[in-house]
Amino acid sequence: MLRFDEFAVALGGRTLVRLDGTVAAGKVLAVMGPSGAGKSSLLKAVAGLIGPPFVVSGRVLVGEEDITRLPVEARGVGLMFQDALLFPHMSVVGNVMFAVPRRVARSRGARREVAMGHLGRVAMAHLAEADPATLSGGERSRVALARTLAGAPRVLLLDEPFAALDQALKARTRDIVFRLAAEDGLPVVMVSHDPADAEAARAQVVEIRPCQEGEGS
């Protein structure tokens, strides 16, 4: 379970986003709004990837643990962006093995097996040895998903993850993402400007508007 407790991101004295409430395991919170409204800043703040001049206040908790002040690497958040951001210097399975925590598997063989399992879940096992640069957009998204899940995250954060895909591909990729997140019991926060994304996820929706000058400071 992911809980926001008066969690807010501000820039220059202006509150960009404020969130309160919980996201249960396997459920999706969709943060909707036009570009420039601060949606991505919110996700970065949850992930711990934001610093000055942004100011983060309130708390964000995973289960009972307050992760607001933890560094990125200690938070256990899985990130997916519009760009898959696969590592171009590793093979497909190498990308996923990179993510497998050592508490899950230590030896190279075991790590590979875990990674192959995640690739199987996204139907990419047959391209395990491929160069990421040769994959199609949909395939790249699926590998990025496998990599994220292999990292055994406690929360999944999606930043417009389907925006670069065409309609048909979008629907298929979206279904895989939400199905696997539910399987792993992950609370999901998704940022999007496409209402269809939220519908498909049967998500709670939070609308944010671009703040006006001076509001909420």
Binding site: V72, E73, A74, R75, G151
Partner: peptide, 9 residues
Amino acid sequence: RVGVARSLG
């Protein structure tokens, strides 16, 4: 990419 690696721990 560095952000992704850090989020992976």
